[in-house]
Nucleic acid binder design. Structure first.
Lengths: 222, 222
DNA sequence: ACCTGAACACCGTTCAAGT
DNA sequence: ACCTGAACACCGTTCAAGT
């Protein structure tokens, strides 16, 4: 009795695998899928994936690069501070849409093409606006540090960020020896229960402070 | 024939387990040990650990709290900007000494005692220097975002931070289509090969910019 | 009170083999 | 060219049992 062949899928491609991996990670909200679960979703055995990516680490490299490919480059035809703000807001958006990405950042070692183009565009725009090489390096460093750090805290909701105190206001206040941490308690009470977009407000405050500082210092860097 | 008893260790305590976990994580440089490897190191089977920590997640919570316990609180008797700088430098130091910690930040949900005391002290100091509640929240948010983000980039050496370009100057320049990313190439050439303490310099530049911005804005926040 | 053996349901990855 | 079976060396965690 001849066994009928299972319906033959389209053969996998790098791109199919990559997009499925990103989609699964986004859905899970936190953490990247296992090779075995990813394979299941693609109707294939885990080992098939190794035909397209040498190992999981290079898959992760490509996932990160895909996140960077979604970030808006500094737009032309507007003031440089506006351009930098737009880039920063877009970057935060991408990191929030793909909450698994920021945790991977500190273990990636091979920047992809979209990542390089992104960096090149930001540096290029700063240089064309009168920032020296050192100045552009400083500006890039402080902006990206702020964006990554803010998002890192935003994603670890319950606390960690004053803007996020609402989330745990209740539960923390209960356990908190109110008189041991009076300033924390006060801040939770005063700023608790604010609407969710408080994060965006808070992000803008710091971003404006930094952009203003960069404007002041721009000429001072050799 | 009576089997001789194996030499009986001191019984484990929460503290022994916790310190061994941190030590192993520090040595590994990256990533936290598995429960099984941690148990081996303590001369015990993995399941014994669950007698002291309900699961790995609460062990991780305590490890993070231990990192915070090493961070200097804003010192008394100095200008507030100096105090904030000392706290920031100390925080970066702790995160660099325990490079596994920053990657855990975005998945922790239960701040420990040392963490709460740290936050309370920072907020308290800002309040006593004339920052309003909103102002203290803004200051805390922008400072911690910067510290975390800078360290995150510093720990993902090869690139990601302009200050870290040296690390890969060579290898990247080779593969890089030099004319596709001219500004990146220029920055790598000009700033490549700088000594390792360049990170500390870079950290200070951004920190000063932010502290100066906070001084200017202090009165403006309701 | 403190620890363990055995088991369960997972991982990433290799290698030789199948179509 | 593309995929798989079987295997290896791992994970975290449970449960009932041992001393």
């Amino acid at each position: 009795m001849v066994q009928e062949r299972p319906p033959r899928r389209e053969p996998l491609t790098r791109t199919t695998v990559l997009h499925a991996a990103v989609a699964m990670a986004d859905e899970a909200g936190t953490g990247v899928p296992s090779m075995r679960n990813l394979a299941d979703r693609l109707g294939v055995k885990a080992m098939a994936l190794y035909h397209h990516f040498r190992n999981k680490d290079v898959l992760l490299d490509h996932m990160i690069d895909l996140v960077f490919s979604e970030v808006e480059l500094p737009p032309e035809g507007v003031d440089w501070q506006v351009a930098m703000r737009r880039r920063a807001v877009s970057m935060r958006g991408a990191l929030i849409r793909h909450p698994w990405a920021i945790g991977l950042m500190d273990s990636r070692t091979n920047p992809g093409h979209a990542t390089l183009r992104h960096h090149d565009a930001v540096i290029g725009r700063l240089r064309s606006e009168g920032f020296s090489i050192a100045g552009a390096a400083h500006a890039f460093s402080v902006l990206d540090s702020y964006i990554y750090g803010f998002t890192l805290q935003e994603l670890s909701l319950p606390f960690e960020s004053p803007a996020g105190l609402e989330g745990v206001a209740g539960s923390i206040l209960e356990e908190l020896p109110g008189d041991e941490f009076p300033h924390l308690a006060e801040m939770i009470v005063e700023r608790g229960g604010r609407p969710g977009y408080a994060y965006t407000e808070e992000f803008d405050v710091g971003l404006d402070l930094i952009l203003d500082g960069l404007r002041r210092q721009r000429e001072s860097w050799p």
